[in-house]
Computed example of a mutant assay.
Amino acid sequence: MADFVLVAGAWLGAWAWDDVVPELRAAGHGAHALTLSGLAERRGVPAGQQTHVQDVVGEVERLGLRDVVLVGHSYSGIPVGQAAERIGDRLNRIVFVDSSVPAHGESMASAWWQGQAVLEAALAGNGGDWAPITAPECEGQGLTDEQIARFVGGCTPHPGATLTEPAVLERPLGDLPATYVKCLLDGPEPTDDVAGLLESDHWRLVETDTGHWPMFSQPRELARILVQQV
């Protein structure tokens, strides 16, 4: 039995995994969905990126977990990737679900596809937070109208400092056991940084024919993929 610690991406909390957790438990594993500081029911709690790293490490320690599979989706791949090296021999594997990955000294903003200044301007224009995604922005990601409404309706603003603070890694990320789950409706190929990491013998690639939020669009399939990584 493994213990999965599930961390959703920007704007989301533990509730995003509600359809995945029962599937993992039915397969005989522990499943622990985590809400990061400043989001969902923890909205208003001050948070930077290292706060989120400590959120993940603290959850593993608080629950006394061993044989841990850390699952980071989207933005949360950045704090999860840092937390993985800090939990030592408790780690079984990291699973990055269509996510960003941390690079030492870099932030999510520094690798932003439109340029760092664009993201920083968007944050400044929204009181320092990243405004939640809207329903039209979810089109083409394999979500039903009902799923989009549930997803968007549950989103809360994302603390901007978590996007602009640099990652801190003590060792190469490619040295850790990891799986990258590529959601093909969000693009057919991993980003260049992920492609480089996938050259490591410790990393493997899994592709799934759905969009960027598979915990909503295909929760049972996502759970099946996660179980196969143990």
Rank of each mutant, 00 (worst) to 15 (best):
E85D: 05
R86A: 07
R86N: 02
R86Y: 14
I87G: 09
D89P: 09
D89L: 11
R90K: 15
L91Y: 05
R93K: 11
R93D: 13
I94S: 09
I94Y: 07
I94H: 04
I94K: 06
I94R: 13
F96V: 13
V97R: 07
D98P: 15
S99P: 12
S99F: 14
S99D: 05
V101M: 04
V101K: 06
P102T: 12
P102H: 12
P102R: 05
A103W: 14
A103L: 15
H104C: 04
H104Q: 03
G105M: 12
G105F: 15
G105V: 15
E106Q: 14
E106H: 15
E106F: 15
E106D: 03
M108P: 00
A109E: 00
A109L: 09
S110K: 00
A111D: 09
A111F: 08
W112D: 08
W112V: 04
Q114S: 13
G115M: 10
G115P: 03
G115I: 05
A117R: 11
A117S: 12
A117Y: 07
V118Q: 10
V118W: 02
L119I: 05
L119F: 15
E120D: 07
E120I: 04
E120A: 07
A121P: 11
A121R: 15
A122G: 08
A122M: 02
L123P: 01
L123A: 06
A124Y: 02
G125D: 10
G125R: 10
N126C: 07
G127A: 10
G127E: 05
G127C: 04
G128Q: 07
D129I: 01
D129A: 13
D129T: 09
W130L: 14
W130M: 11
P132M: 07
P132I: 02
P132L: 01
I133M: 07
T134A: 13
A135S: 08
A135T: 04
A135Y: 02
P136A: 08
P136Q: 03
P136S: 02
E137N: 02
E137P: 01
C138F: 02
E139S: 08
E139N: 14
Q141L: 06
Q141D: 06
Q141E: 15
G142H: 07
G142W: 01
L143Y: 05
L143M: 10
L143H: 00
D145P: 02
D145W: 00
D145S: 11
D145K: 02
E146A: 13
Q147D: 03
Q147A: 12
Q147H: 12
I148H: 00
I148G: 00
I148D: 01
I148C: 07
R150E: 11
F151N: 01
F151K: 08
F151P: 06
V152N: 11
V152S: 09
G153N: 06
C155V: 03
C155A: 15
T156P: 14
T156R: 04
P157E: 03
P159W: 10
G160P: 01
A161N: 08
